[in-house]
């Protein structure tokens, strides 16, 4: 059983929902990322989405674009990120780590080499924003062969036929993009999310994480009620940006934002 599945199953048994924070690896500098990952876990994270910085993150809003730019100023590469995850795993063997990024850096390394190193370093899942299932016929089975999960996106515009196909290619969870827009977009509508998540569940038996537009404890709690997991990114990345000179400052603020979401979700 994958670490993602066992994590989500265990939460379900406790009647809880997964809290899935996103940060960009290497932001504001690579040597801080592992510390921040532990901080996320200590503040209530169940799964960590670790962003792989890309020069042209076209599905992301300005907050994550700038995080990528900060990370790339330090030339944060996939190899650096594998080192970070490997080091994280020495202290934490429970919390799943999903790499989230774009296809070109993976292809430049070579898909096989990427998956080999990802699995070896302790990565549990891969979410490639610009790789739809249609283009992943070769990629997704290779991810599975390495014992990792493939996470794909479902959007408000996704038809039922596509939901079926996306869920067939996905394992671990699917990522429902709650609003039409880029990461860090305007507030989501909980009613719309509830309806769409119910629709996805009626089509496929896979946990549904919801992201985009979750900014505070209130929206996290509302989304947790209608889904299996709450994915939160831009608000955390913004916290990192505002405290980028000060590691302990980032950890304090990051911890308090995430803890408040955890408490609201578990209440």
């Amino acid at each position: 059983m994958s670490r993602i599945k066992s994590t989500i199953d265990a939460l379900k048994a406790e009647g809880k929902k997964a809290l899935i924070p996103y940060i960009t690896a290497g932001d504001p500098q690579p040597s801080w990322t592992e510390d921040l990952m532990h901080c996320l876990v200590d503040s209530g994270a169940d799964i960590i989405e670790l962003g792989v910085p890309f020069s042209d993150p076209m599905a992301d809003g300005p907050v994550i674009q700038l995080a990528c730019e900060r990370a790339l100023k330090h030339n944060t590469s996939l190899s650096d990120i594998f080192d970070i995850v490997r080091s994280f795993r020495e202290k934490n063997t429970d919390t799943p780590v999903v790499l989230m990024g774009y296809l070109n850096p993976i292809e430049r390394m070579g898909v096989d080499a990427f998956l080999e190193k990802a699995a070896e370093s302790g990565v549990d899942g891969v979410l490639t924003v610009d790789l739809p299932p249609e283009e992943a016929e070769i990629f997704a089975p290779k991810v599975a062969a390495k014992g990792m999960d493939s996470v794909f996106l479902v959007a408000p515009t996704t038809t039922d036929d596509r939901i079926r196909s996306i869920c067939k290619h996905s394992s671990g969870y699917v990522y429902y993009v709650s609003v039409k827009g880029v990461t860090g977009s305007a507030a989501l509508s909980t009613d719309d999310v509830a309806q769409k998540v119910a629709n996805i569940r009626s089509i496929a038996d896979i946990p549904v994480g919801v992201g985009f537009g979750i900014t505070d404890a209130e929206s996290a709690s509302a989304v947790a009620k209608v889904s299996d997991g709450v994915i939160v990114g831009s608000v955390l990345v913004n916290t990192i940006k505002e405290n980028q000179e000060d590691l302990s400052g980032i950890k304090d603020k990051l911890g308090s934002v995430l803890s408040s979401m955890r408490q609201a979700m578990d209440a």
Binding site: M58, A59, D130, P132, E135, T158, R162
Partner: peptide, 20 residues
């Protein structure tokens, strides 16, 4: 039909744009 010219082309976009 999938938009390929040999190995090139295709549709590498985030899911929201597929319907459009």
């Amino acid at each position: 039909d999938t938009g390929h010219f040999g190995p090139y082309g295709g549709r590498f976009v985030s899911e929201t744009l597929f319907a459009a």
